[in-house]
Amino acid sequence: MSFTTIPLTGSKPEQYDQLLSQVRGLLHGERDRVANAANLSSLVYHALPALNWVGFYFYDGTELVVGPFQGLPACVRIPLDKGVCGAAASTRQTQRVADVHAFPGHIACDSASRSELVVPLVDGDTLVGVFDLDSPEPGRFDAEDQAGLEAIAAAFVQSLR
């Protein structure tokens, strides 16, 4: 089976609706989290502008462990009390950070990253991990990005059921 991405057009919310439709098609019928995370990180990395890292960290019961991603090599393990990913996992709330250098305890896996958006992946009461996006541009992510990426993260979690 081949998958062709469709260029995104229109307003940012319309683009996220189009991307979510592509995500659902990509994940349809597959429940393996590694396969879905690999394809999803690639799709988002190539579909959205100004990103230098897109990927997943999975919760192993103690800490976050790097999963499939696109970008430069990443930190392998992140404690729940460290960095933007740890904050998203421990609070179970999306973290949208305009300037990662101003975030207390930021973990600089890629020194080029300037802003970050991390969506917690939660299935019922169970923490699955986080969906992490980095950008070399300060302030890259806004509320529309957050809403669109939260919907994509929810589709990923749904695909695991």
Rank of each mutant, 00 (worst) to 15 (best):
Y45C: 12
Y59M: 01
D110W: 03
V97Y: 09
D81P: 13
V65K: 09
P79R: 13
E63Q: 15
G67K: 08
E116D: 01
N36F: 08
A108T: 14
A89T: 09
P120Q: 06
L149A: 05
H46A: 09
V119H: 03
C109H: 05
V128D: 00
V100M: 05
D81R: 15
L121N: 05
P104I: 11
T126W: 00
F56D: 04
R96W: 06
F3C: 04
L133V: 07
T9W: 00
G83V: 08
I152D: 02
L133P: 02
S90V: 14
N52S: 05
A89R: 13
A37R: 13
A74T: 13
I78G: 04
S135F: 06
S11I: 02
L127E: 00
G25L: 13
G61E: 00
T94R: 12
S21H: 14
L160A: 06
L48F: 11
F141R: 04
K12D: 00
P13Q: 11
L121K: 05
S90G: 12
E137N: 09
V130Q: 00
A88M: 04
V119L: 01
V130A: 03
G124L: 03
D17T: 13
S21V: 12
I152C: 02
L27F: 10
C109L: 07
P79F: 04
N52V: 08
R31Q: 14
R33P: 13
G83N: 07
L149I: 01
F103T: 02
R161A: 15
P138L: 13
E150N: 13
V65T: 12
P136T: 05
F131V: 03
A151V: 02
V84L: 07
G10H: 00
P104S: 14
Q95T: 14
K82S: 12
E116S: 06
Y59A: 04
F3G: 07
L149S: 06
G129A: 01
E14Q: 11
S111T: 15
R33V: 14
S159C: 05
P49F: 07
V23C: 09
M1G: 15
W53M: 07
H46W: 11
V34M: 09
L64R: 01
S11K: 06
L64N: 01
S2W: 15
P49C: 05
A108M: 08
S115E: 08
L26A: 07
R33Y: 07
Y57L: 04
E14I: 02
T4K: 11
A87K: 15
R92M: 06
D110Y: 08
L19G: 02
A154C: 10
